[in-house]
Structures are given as C-alpha cells and as structure tokens.
Simulated assay, not measured.
Amino acid sequence: MPDRRLIAGAAAGLLAASSAWAQTCPAGEDVLWSCETRSKTYALCASKDAARDRGHVQYRVRQGERTEFVFPEQPRPPAGLFLYQLFNKSAQVSFANGAYSYELREAMEAAGEIEVTREGRRVALVKCRTSSDTLTLTPTIRRFEAMGMTR
C-alpha cells in the first residue's frame, strides 16, 4: 500500500508546479507542458473542456509579454493535430506546421527540449533552462488519451 505522506507530497509538488507555470497560459486554460529559456517561454496550453471533439490545445511561444507564435492559429480540438508518445525514459508531443515539424521532449534525466525540423533537417534545438516536467505524469497522460492525442 502506498504511503499517504508520499502521495500527499507528490500532489503538493504538482500543485506548486502547476501554479508556478499557470502564468504561461491565459486564464481559463491549463498548462500541459512549459519550457523556459533565458528569453522565451514555450507552452502547450489546453482549454479546460479540451477533448477529442471540443475545446482546444495550442502551442505558444512568448517573449516577455508578446506572443510570437501560436499553433494552431485558430483554437481547434487537438485530435489529429498533436501526437503524444510515451517512451521508456521520455515522452514527447509532436505536431507539424506546413513544412516544419516540432517535437516537445521531456526526458527523465534532463531538462526538456524542443526540436524543429524542416524536411527532416534540424533547423532549431531549444534547450529548456527549466520545464514543467509534466509529460510523464499519469494525469497528463490520461488527459492526452481523452483528447485523442495518442495512437
């Protein structure tokens, strides 16, 4: 039987992490994953009602208070736009925007990273100074499944 103190501690840590990252997404949205560099914040945000056929998930890049990039531009349900994959010691969310492919990665031993490729060639690799470390959490995985983001 799991130790209740361990479970309570993990829940408290998750709440602290989620409140620290909450400013990353607009009010009324949840942070599914977030990454910070020296100058930018990258986030995967979801409406509270996000599901396979309703609500939305959007990837956003911000520098200070200015949003530089949003995918998809218009909010849409996430199924068919984003793909979540869980691996042995990591997880990732991927999506394509025109000729560009994006992989938001979280490894168990390292900070998150974002790789952008065009026609199979890397055009950018962003190393996160800090990340929310939420892609491998069971509640996040279940949410991705409910949103149709898994195979």
Rank of each mutant, 00 (worst) to 15 (best):
R66T: 14
Q63F: 05
V57P: 02
E113Q: 07
C45K: 04
Q23M: 06
R66Q: 14
W21R: 00
V57L: 10
Y59G: 03
L15S: 14
F144M: 06
R66W: 03
M149R: 05
L104M: 05
C45V: 00
S47I: 03
E145G: 12
R5I: 09
L14C: 07
A96L: 05
V31A: 04
Q58A: 02
F95D: 03
A10D: 08
T41A: 04
E36K: 13
C45Y: 01
A22S: 08
R151Y: 09
A8K: 12
R121F: 12
V61D: 08
A43Y: 03
G148T: 00
M147V: 03
S94I: 12
F95T: 00
H56T: 05
L86V: 06
L125G: 05
A20K: 11
L137Q: 07
P2F: 10
F87P: 08
S90V: 02
R4E: 15
E115I: 15
A146K: 13
F82H: 06
K127C: 08
R62Q: 11
P72Q: 01
A79Y: 11
A12H: 07
T140M: 10
T134V: 06
A107Y: 09
R129T: 14
T130E: 14
T150M: 08
R142G: 14
N88K: 15
R5W: 13
S39H: 14
T130C: 11
S132F: 05
F69D: 10
A107R: 15
R122E: 13
A79D: 09
G13N: 03
E65T: 14
A43V: 04
A50L: 02
F71G: 02
G55A: 03
A107E: 13
F144R: 00
G28L: 01
F87Q: 12
Y84E: 05
P72V: 01
A16I: 04
F69V: 13
R129L: 13
E65H: 12
A46N: 01
A11P: 00
V126R: 01
R5Y: 13
P2Y: 14
A22T: 02
R52W: 11
C45I: 05
R62H: 07
V61C: 09
R105F: 15
S101A: 11
I114K: 00
L125D: 09
R60I: 01
Y84V: 00
S47D: 01
G64V: 02
P75Q: 07
Q85F: 08
